[in-house]
Amino acid sequence: MIDGVKKDIEKLSGKIIEWRRDFHRHPEIAYEEKRTSSVIRQFLEGLDIPVSACAKTGLRGILEGRPGGKTVALRADIDALPLKEEGDKEYISENPEAAHACGHDGHMAILMGTAEVLSHRKDQFKGNVVFLFQPSEERIPGGAKKMIEEGALKGVDAVFGLHLWQPLPTGFVGIVKGAMMAQPDAFTVTVRGKGGHGSMPHTTVDPILVASHLVVNIQSIVSRNVDPLKPVVVSFGTVKGGTIYNIIPGEVSLTGTVRTFDSSIQSLAEKRLKEIVEETCKTFGATAEFEYEKGYPSLINPEGMTDFVLEVTRNTLGEDRIQEIDPVMGGEDFAYFLQKVPGAFLFFGMGDGMEFPHHHPAFDLDEKALPRATLLMTSLALEFLAAKE
C-alpha cells in the first residue's frame, strides 16, 4: 500500500503547498481562527468526513474505515502569532497583526493532505482516523486541554503529532524518548518603591535599583539551588519602568519564564523566585507583587510509541532520515494529549536554506518538507491501525 500512498502524495504535493500558502496569507491568532476553521471544515466535509466544532474554533473530524479495529488521532495546531511579518515573499501575511511564524500553516496543510489520501483509501484499512485541528497552541493555557475536555480523545487509542522544525535539515526526523519538551511557566514581578527626582535619590526607594538586584540574585536559582545535572532555565523577557531620564519611577515591572522537565525542579524554582523577590525588596525598603503562571506540562514521549515512530520512519523515509536530537526547552501543549492516551510527538526538518528561526518575523519554511511529512503522518496512521494489539 505504501507505494500507492507515495504516488497519491506526489500528485497532491502542489495542492498541499497551495493550502499552506493560503493559510500563510490569512493568519489568525488564538481563538480567532474563524476563517481558518471554515476553510478546513469545508475541506473535510468535501471528503465526506463528519466534522464537529471543538474548543471554540477547533475541529474534530472522524474518518471511518472498515468496521472494527482501533482509532488513531492525528493533530495539527492552527493558530498564528501576534506579530507583523517581514520580508517580500509572494504569500506574505495580509494581516498586519498576525503571522504564521512557527509553521502551523504547514501543519494544517500536512494534515489536510493526510486526510485526503486516507479518505480515498478508507476501504483498505480497518478502524478510524480522528483529525484534530487544534486552536491556541501558542497561548497558555492552550487549546489541547479544552479539546480533551470536550471529548476530542473519546475512543482514541493513540495520538500522533509533529512540528516542522527549522534546526533540522529538510526531510529529517528528530524525536526523543521520555522528556522531549519543557514545561514553560511564566512569572511577573511588580516592584513598588517611592519615586522622586533623579538628583535626590536619597529621598526615594528606587525600584530600578531593586529590579537590577532581582535580575542578578535570581540567577542563583540555576547556579546554586538546582543540581547542575538537571536542566532548568530562568530567563527575564521584559523590564519596564520610568518615563524620562531625570525621574526615578515609583514602579518597575519584570516578566520572565521558567523552563524545566522535572516537576520537583519547577516547584523549587517557583518557591525560590518568590523568596528572592520578597527578601531583595525588603532589603531596599520596597515591596513587590509576584505572580506565577504554570504552563503546559513537560512533553513526555513513551518509549514504546517512540520506537514505533522510528520504525515507521525507517520503513517510509529511510534509516538515514533519522537524526539524533536533544530535548528542547520550548513548550508544547500536545503534552496534554500524551497524558491521556499513548502516542508520540516528533520534529520534522524543514530547515534547508531557511535563515530565520521560529517566531522570527521573517520566518519561512522549506516547502519540500510538506509532502514528505504528509507521507510520514499517513504512514503512522495506517501502520498503527494495521498493527496487532
Rank of each mutant, 00 (worst) to 15 (best):
K6Y: 12
D8M: 13
K11H: 11
L12I: 12
S13G: 04
K15H: 11
R20K: 11
D22V: 11
F23P: 03
F23C: 02
E28C: 05
R35N: 12
I40N: 09
R41M: 02
A53S: 15
C54R: 07
C54H: 04
A55Y: 00
K56T: 13
K56F: 09
R60M: 14
G65S: 12
G69Y: 02
V72P: 08
I78V: 13
G87Q: 03
G87A: 05
I92A: 11
I92L: 09
P96S: 07
A99G: 08
H100P: 05
A101G: 13
A101W: 10
G106M: 08
G106H: 09
L111A: 11
S119R: 05
K122W: 06
D123P: 10
N128K: 15
V129F: 05
Q134V: 04
E137Q: 08
A144S: 11
K145R: 15
G151Y: 05
A152T: 09
L153Y: 02
V156C: 12
V156R: 06
A158Q: 03
V159P: 02
Q166G: 08
P167W: 08
P169T: 07
G174E: 07
I175E: 00
K177N: 10
M180F: 10
M180R: 00
T190R: 14
H202F: 15
T203M: 12
P207S: 08
A211K: 09
H213M: 09
S223N: 04
S223T: 13
R224E: 13
V233N: 03
V234P: 07
S235H: 08
F236A: 04
F236E: 00
N246F: 10
I247F: 01
I247S: 10
I248K: 01
E251K: 15
T255H: 03
T257Y: 00
V258S: 09
T260Q: 11
I265M: 03
L268E: 14
L268N: 13
L273R: 02
V277N: 08
V277W: 08
E279T: 15
E279R: 14
C281K: 06
F284W: 12
K294N: 03
G295M: 04
S298I: 14
N301A: 03
N301C: 01
G304K: 14
T313H: 00
T316D: 05
T316H: 06
E319S: 14
I325H: 05
P327I: 08
V328F: 04
G330E: 11
G330I: 15
G331H: 01
F334R: 06
Y336T: 00
F337L: 06
Q339K: 14
P342F: 04
G349K: 07
M350I: 15
D352I: 07
M354E: 13
E355F: 11
H360G: 06
H360Y: 09
A362L: 05
D364E: 04
K368V: 05
K368M: 02
A373M: 09
M377F: 13
L380Y: 07
L380P: 10
A387N: 11
